[in-house]
């Protein structure tokens, strides 16, 4: 990390605690220091309940830090959202059931109050491989197709920051692998600062430039790993010994924590 270019996203000694109904509070995150360079793809990897989604929600401006500071391009996260410069794909696809695929993807335009760029919507529908399902409703789509529509919606305004919260968490292994390849292809058409939250080691290595491994209770950063594979990455990289070695290494890094849980 060079000091010359300031980080696009910066978390400085951030902690987050939640107050429970019984009056006690639980610490979800503690002492998180994290920076994402402009155009970098970072994956946050960890077991469920380690607070990795909270990291994403802090950056999305959906939660505020109990201590420490979260800055995006030097400003508060909510300002990025207010400027309609943030794209988020949620674990639950969060498509509106009463809108068609095209209308769902065009929703960010309408929320921003700008004219819908139909050519761009159509181009994205094609990019995510939903041609022919333009006017279908979410209930008529498969799980994988819904996630693709959700990713297209996150990309439509050409955001500065893309946040992916386990977007393929609910999919089966085959579809998930397929979606990873698609996302890799989509992402290589335009690099943008991206944070992916996942519990899948394969997914993190295949997609990210850098991986942050987290442990739970309270959520802390365990280690950082730079992914050496050059871009664009062909699915064949998944079969190389280097890839397997890295998967083993990171799986081991996650394991003691899982054994302790």
């Amino acid at each position: 990390m060079t000091q010359a270019t300031p980080d696009a996203i910066r978390l400085d000694s951030v902690s987050k605690s939640f107050r429970l109904d019984d009056g006690n509070s639980v610490t979800a995150l503690e002492g998180i220091d994290l920076g994402l360079r402009e155009g970098e793809f970072v994956a946050v990897l960890g077991p469920s309940g380690c607070g990795k989604s909270t990291v994403l929600r802090l950056i999305a401006g959906l939660e505020s830090a109990s201590t420490g500071e979260v800055r995006i391009e030097g400003r508060a996260p909510s300002q990025l959202a207010a400027a309609h410069r943030l794209g988020v794909a949620f674990q639950d696809h969060a498509l509106l059931p009463w809108l068609s695929v095209a209308q769902n993807i065009a929703l960010p335009y309408r929320v921003a109050g700008t004219k819908v760029d139909n050519a761009r919507v159509d181009a994205l529908i094609e990019l995510v491989g939903l041609t022919g399902f333009r006017d279908a409703r979410p209930s008529q789509l498969s799980g994988g197709m819904r996630q693709r529509a959700s990713i297209a919606r996150a990309l439509v305004l050409d955001p500065d920051v893309l946040l992916l919260d386990e977007p393929f968490g609910a999919l089966d292994a085959v579809t998930r692998r397929h979606m990873n390849v698609e996302l890799q292809r989509i992402w290589s058409t335009r690099t943008l600062t991206t944070l992916l939250v996942t519990h899948s080691v394969d997914e993190a290595i295949f997609l990210a430039d850098r991986i942050i491994v987290m442990t739970g209770r309270p959520g802390r950063i365990l280690r950082e790993v730079t992914v050496p594979f050059p871009r664009p990455r062909d699915p064949s990289v998944l079969r190389t010994p280097e890839f397997h070695a890295m998967v083993d290494e990171l799986t081991l890094a996650l394991e003691p924590e899982e054994a302790a849980l």
Partner: peptide, 8 residues
């Protein structure tokens, strides 16, 4: 959540 992140 979606609408908040879209800056609605």
């Amino acid at each position: 959540d979606l609408f908040r992140t879209l800056g609605a």
